[in-house]
Design a protein around this nucleic acid. Sequence first.
DNA 1: TTCATTTCTTAATCTATATCAATGCACAGC
DNA 2: GCTGTGCATTGATATAGATTAAGAAATGAA
Lengths: 153, 153
Amino acid sequence: MKVNKGQILQRAGDLNTKVYAVETGLLRSYTIDEKGKEHIFAFAHEGWTIADLCEITDPCELFIDALENSTVTVIEKEERKKQVDINTVVNRVFVLQKRVIMLMSASAIERYEHFVKIYPNIVQRVSQKMIASYLGITPEALSRVRKERTKAK
Amino acid sequence: MKVNKGQILQRAGDLNTKVYAVETGLLRSYTIDEKGKEHIFAFAHEGWTIADLCEITDPCELFIDALENSTVTVIEKEERKKQVDINTVVNRVFVLQKRVIMLMSASAIERYEHFVKIYPNIVQRVSQKMIASYLGITPEALSRVRKERTKAK
DNA sequence: TTCATTTCTTAATCTATATCAATGCACAGC
DNA sequence: GCTGTGCATTGATATAGATTAAGAAATGAA
């Protein structure tokens, strides 16, 4: 399945039973809060999958859209559960464990440093606005962090 | 296995291959940051399991200790992976998804309201200091939130 | 190329929450 | 019964990051 940059695959509030496996390109999942602000939950590039893992009977919380023109394989959640290795899912829990700890304990600078170290390829491909949204800070704050960072060298 | 209140089952930095299933009592997992501040990652009461899901070859990030006198079944991670239902793990990812979104978008008040709604039984059993640590705020801030909350009625 | 739109940066405020400090309580051990 | 230790509360102050606003730079469309 081909999706164009900007195309929305899933909206918060939808009932959704799909998992998206990215073949080429880049997707993201995000929420929009009451104030209309976007918060990016995840990026997914080639070889990664992305989904809202809510119960298939419940309306989902995340939007999913394409940040680049992409090709995507759509899989039913139930189907995916049968195929996927338990280690893959356990590893995802571990990644989220780290993310929660970061959000609870790290400053804007530390979060950015960590992000750059863990996802250097994503950093190249998305706008700073997107990175800021993923880190849970504003683009203005990220701009300042980056300024400090280069100055420090 | 019996553990007393305050007893530590696992320390950050240890190599650890265990998952703890709580039969009775209450455990928690937490990190300690560079400033010596504790951040609670999870609580686990009767019927729940708790672990640091790092690779078994890597030093873990979390401490696990008992908040009440407890009885615990210790399981090897590899063993647990064979037994556990994929839905259980997927559901844990979903819970963490919610937690990340909360940490990125919600104020102290909203986080507390959500916590009280989702874990009313935990609220009864742990100190406010512990709840504050789980929510990613200080005990002082939680005290003020609670004051506002009762005043609002 | 030109015009429009979006992104990035910078600066000036504002605000939620952290930090620091003092006090009153409750519970545990002696 | 005291006495110490940790917890909750409150107030004063500090601060990281948000908000607002404006201009500069990049991107994209016609």
